[in-house]
């Protein structure tokens, strides 16, 4: 049996797969491939983690004095 999905074609469709926008048969082919492919299982794990890691790493701290300076700036410009 020849597989319809290989690592490269599965990776190509990975976001569509995760967002649930693929047709059922293709979705199922990808799920089957990933379940049986250690490399794709590892790849999917790191692909899913990447946004979370970057989201947390780039979380900026809101400066406490910004609200007042922002409102003052805008009031000044509105005059």
């Amino acid at each position: 049996m020849s597989e319809r999905v290989v690592c490269a074609s599965g990776v190509e469709l990975l976001m569509d797969f995760l967002e649930g926008v693929l047709p059922d048969d293709l979705r199922s082919d990808i799920a089957t491939h990933v379940a049986g492919c250690e490399r794709c299982t590892a790849f999917v794990a790191s692909y899913r983690e990447t946004p979370r890691i970057l989201r947390e790493a780039t979380l900026a701290t809101f400066p406490p004095d910004l609200e007042q300076s922002l409102l003052a700036f805008l009031r000044e410009r509105r005059r």
Partner: peptide
């Protein structure tokens, strides 16, 4: 069309 890297390498991130 197969991954060139090993599972351990692929999961490093």
């Amino acid at each position: 069309g197969l991954h060139c890297s090993t599972p351990a390498e692929l999961q490093l991130a």
